[in-house]
Design a protein around this nucleic acid. Structure first.
Lengths: 216, 216
DNA sequence: CATAATGTTTACCAACCGGTCAAATTATCA
DNA sequence: TGATAATTTGACCGGTTGGTAAACATTATG
């Protein structure tokens, strides 16, 4: 009778875990490809293989589903940036950040598109996360980059725009996948694409951030 | 009685031009912020300041409106890439391409988001344009870049991924504007943002593509 | 095994949405 | 000016959508 989330029993039942898992998986699929408004509960229910009212038994509203999904995914999404290590070698850190972000685009394109859809449409559901945890983390890492530049370990540059550039270039392969495939052609797009992109971006960013010696 | 598009009179009346203009302007606003599925004819009608049936008098369906809008905007959108000149100085050409694209993001953010929404959701309405005119233009310019690299005028690099990187970094400021503003803070985001971004991206791409001399 | 709690389904509703229609209004021009 | 064509609107329609109510089924537990 009672809704699972509000149940008196503190423990989530096995069946609750399983179903919520299946629902969020389906929701990711649907929200990522249609955006929030473009997605219907029926669609999600079908992908999840259950009836609409059943789905609404676990998440009261479409928005609750979306919220739960965002919460669950945001942390993972920011992991690569968190791994950015102030003590490490600057070039190596930047290289591996690019690589990790690119791997995310390859392995979790739906998560990328979920956020892209949301941000693109004005982030009506995640604005708090943007100005809160996200900004804080970026500020912190920007300081690291700025220190590297000041110490002459990389070229002087605006750390925020550097981070934006890495986000943009790596996520592009997930978010604009259709366009990339259209331009490269179906064949080229598949096989070597990941390595090609990684090689190019590493070259671009590492040379681009190399300290410019004023005549050796 | 008859629909204007199918009218016997070949000439479009003044009133037709004006109304279609107003409708497409409103459609751009709405489609860009909500995507195709997320937009309603009522919304567009309200922004355009006319009734829904009146709007449907000029464009028979929502899709017809969207199609007309895409057609009208796509050419302009590709202009910067078209301006890319094989005869020019490579560094100067790349620099001014970046600048033009960045100006587009600043001056026509809605157009950018319109395409971003569309591509992000699988480009269901513009796939022909992608594999047709777009691919053709990109192929052509990729050849130019490849020739430059072969002639030693810029570093060896994959021209397609270079173009993707320029698209991604410049359009990022239009498409992910909310996120950029959230991270930079409302103040920093406004004034110097354009110049900061331009300076950073020019540094990144021009140094990144500089021929790496193997000891002078 | 009884029984209460949890989980699932069928039927349904009100609001919304894309689109039509016929009637009313306005612009055009002989 | 008056006839005719172009434009505009309110009322409406069928399908979709987010969500509810209540009956039914299943599972956990004393």
């Amino acid at each position: 009778m009672a809704l699972p989330r509000a149940a008196k029993t503190q423990r989530r039942t096995r069946i609750q875990e399983e179903k919520e898992e299946r629902i969020l998986e389906a929701a990711l699929e649907v929200f990522a490809t249609n955006g929030f408004r473009g997605s219907t509960i029926d669609q999600i229910a079908e992908v999840a293989g259950m009836s609409k009212p059943n789905l609404l038994y676990y998440f009261r509203t479409k928005e609750a589903m979306h919220r739960a999904l965002i919460e669950r995914v945001l942390d993972t999404w920011l992991d690569p940036l968190r791994a950015f290590d102030a003590e490490g070698n600057p070039s190596a850190e930047i290289r591996s950040y690019i690589r990790r972000k690119l791997e995310m685009s390859r392995d979790f394109p739906r998560e990328s598109r979920l956020f892209a859809n949301e941000v693109l449409q004005g982030a009506p559901h995640i604005e708090d996360e943007l100005v809160g945890p996200l900004k804080q983390l970026v500020d912190e890492k920007a300081q690291v980059i700025r220190a590297w530049a000041k110490a002459g370990k990389i070229a002087k540059c605006d750390p925020y725009h550097l981070i934006f550039a890495i986000w943009a270039t790596t996520q592009h392969y997930a978010d604009f996948d259709v366009q990339v495939r259209a331009v490269l052609g179906e064949d080229l797009a598949g096989e070597g694409r990941f390595e090609d992109a990684a090689r190019f971006l590493e070259q671009l960013f590492l040379n681009g951030l190399k300290v410019q010696s004023t005549v050796p």
